[in-house]
Design a protein around this nucleic acid. Sequence first.
DNA 1: TATTGGCACTCATAGGTATTGAGTGCTAGT
DNA 2: ACTAGCACTCAATACCTATGAGTGCCAATA
Lengths: 347, 347
Amino acid sequence: MVSERGLAVLRAIVQDYVATREPVGSKTIVDKHRFGVSAATIRNDMALLEDEELIAAPHTSSGRVPTDKGYRVFVDQLADIRPLSPAQRHAIEIFLGESVDIDDVLTRTVRALAQLTHQVALIQYPSVSRARIQHLEFVALAPRRVLTVLIADTGVVEQRVVELSVDYDDAALRALRDATNAALVGMPMADASAVLPAIVDGFPETLRPLAGELVESVGAIIGSTRQERLIMAGTANLVRTEHDFTGSIFPIMEAIEEQVELLKLFGEMAAEQHGVGGNRDVSVSIGRENEPFGLAETSVLTTGYGAASGPVARLGVLGPTRMDYSTNMAAVRAVARYLSRALGDQA
Amino acid sequence: MVSERGLAVLRAIVQDYVATREPVGSKTIVDKHRFGVSAATIRNDMALLEDEELIAAPHTSSGRVPTDKGYRVFVDQLADIRPLSPAQRHAIEIFLGESVDIDDVLTRTVRALAQLTHQVALIQYPSVSRARIQHLEFVALAPRRVLTVLIADTGVVEQRVVELSVDYDDAALRALRDATNAALVGMPMADASAVLPAIVDGFPETLRPLAGELVESVGAIIGSTRQERLIMAGTANLVRTEHDFTGSIFPIMEAIEEQVELLKLFGEMAAEQHGVGGNRDVSVSIGRENEPFGLAETSVLTTGYGAASGPVARLGVLGPTRMDYSTNMAAVRAVARYLSRALGDQA
DNA sequence: TATTGGCACTCATAGGTATTGAGTGCTAGT
DNA sequence: ACTAGCACTCAATACCTATGAGTGCCAATA
């Protein structure tokens, strides 16, 4: 079993290795951290840690490096999440203060997170399906062509041009708009789909075809995959940390750009909420745990964000397994709070 | 002066170097390309090319590599733009065929271009200010809160939430909508700003405050910088070609992500239209020419796209100076045509 | 005059060997 | 339970020596 001091040694190894990228030796530890014991004692502890597969030696005779399992223990038990400095908080506020549009808010937020962590920052687009409908509009564009606009209470606006097979007039359009709004406003998107057919049935025979096509476009918007998208910033940072990967980072960058695997991972992290160890509102997925997503050797930290009514989606950062978890977890958490507040103001 | 054959040698050097990333020697040239002369003769030609600074030798005794100037001559005089293969054209059509939304069109297009060229693909967002107004809508959201929606004939939809200092009713909103539409529809955005005050003046005293605020929001949308944005794909490809850069690609990736310098470059390339050498509708900016933008050692190929009424914006690719100009120019040109057509269909 | 064969010269690259030193595991002693 | 001491390992470094692709130049040739 690993002793109390053993864990302290693990913490020291993780911190030093993250800071220097050099395998950490027993001498380094006694020099930098004030353990009251000799290097030989530390070596004994390290031998135990190695038995537990929490650390490993790159070659027979070099210092130790944390394993994925070691990082896991560090994150779950040893990392202290120190809050951001006042300067950093101030920087975020200025950064986000000027934004007006929701896309603007998201773009600025993701950039702030990237700059704060020096990693790739990711924000899942606010899920339309989990939000509520605030307003619905049909805009006449041309004969047989209408623009359907759907506004969610998160401030997200979705639109789609509909080509109709039947004619319409403004009165009909207005009537349809009023009826659908009456039926849908305030309703969670997820529940809305079920109500749609009833709306069509409520119209006189003559309007049925038009109503059918327009309402269908609403359903299409709700069911659309737009919400399954990530906004990202700081991909350049992955290049900066290239040496932390054994192979090329090309496949990783490809996977990130492709988004689809990353979104699956986001989904899983949202689902498991990752135990309840302490104040762990930030989920962490480490190294090989991400292999199924083509993201081996990376770690992903995420947390939920949204209005008071509950989380709408997730945001986080991605970087090499060898990263500063303490700082990054703090940044992710703080930025999520700022974004949630900004969205609350908005909606 | 460089002889006819000398230019042919330059072409051979560029092609070989691009293909192999190895400095090209005289022997290689006589082996691969059927010049009817000996290696010694080629060496004489190469000495001349070196005097003209079209090629250079990395070290005293290795093959030659094209200089930026050499690439410039190659692009302006020697590159043959071979059309895409039928398979490639087919791939594009399938790729773009399914898209419905304009954002969807752009996203798919930029991905197609990245995949075709194996470079970073860039599309400048269709400039709102150069397009015409197709429709304008004020959507009532809540007391003192209205959503202004502006639809351009390029299919671009811009929206903004307006907080009002005065109350309104639906009738007033409708009247305003009709009046502004009557005044603005069909007008180029750039000209619209001038007309806005007159619209407000056309309203009775009581509606002036409301009209003023709403019309102002229209002006804000038109003047917004949203159009100054790039959609991009294939940044992973830069990593793949990392060895083509002397230093780290980190600053380059940063510059690309930042977008602002890149947009300046796009602007310049649009302005100069780059001479009239032959069928040069694709502009090329090579290596050190891009240094002021923080993009030394890269080349950028762009061309305009848009409806029949003229170019709306530009698209192109960015990659290391050592790239396959012939193929990439062909791809850029072809994709621009497909996109222009898709936008025409859309609008 | 343009081209070619021949040749000495250069210099990056690859391979081989010796040296160094950080760090370990182990054992015996406190 | 801890520590000092010591033999051992092995990556990293330096240094040396081919090797060979490729050049520039010159004299010979068409």
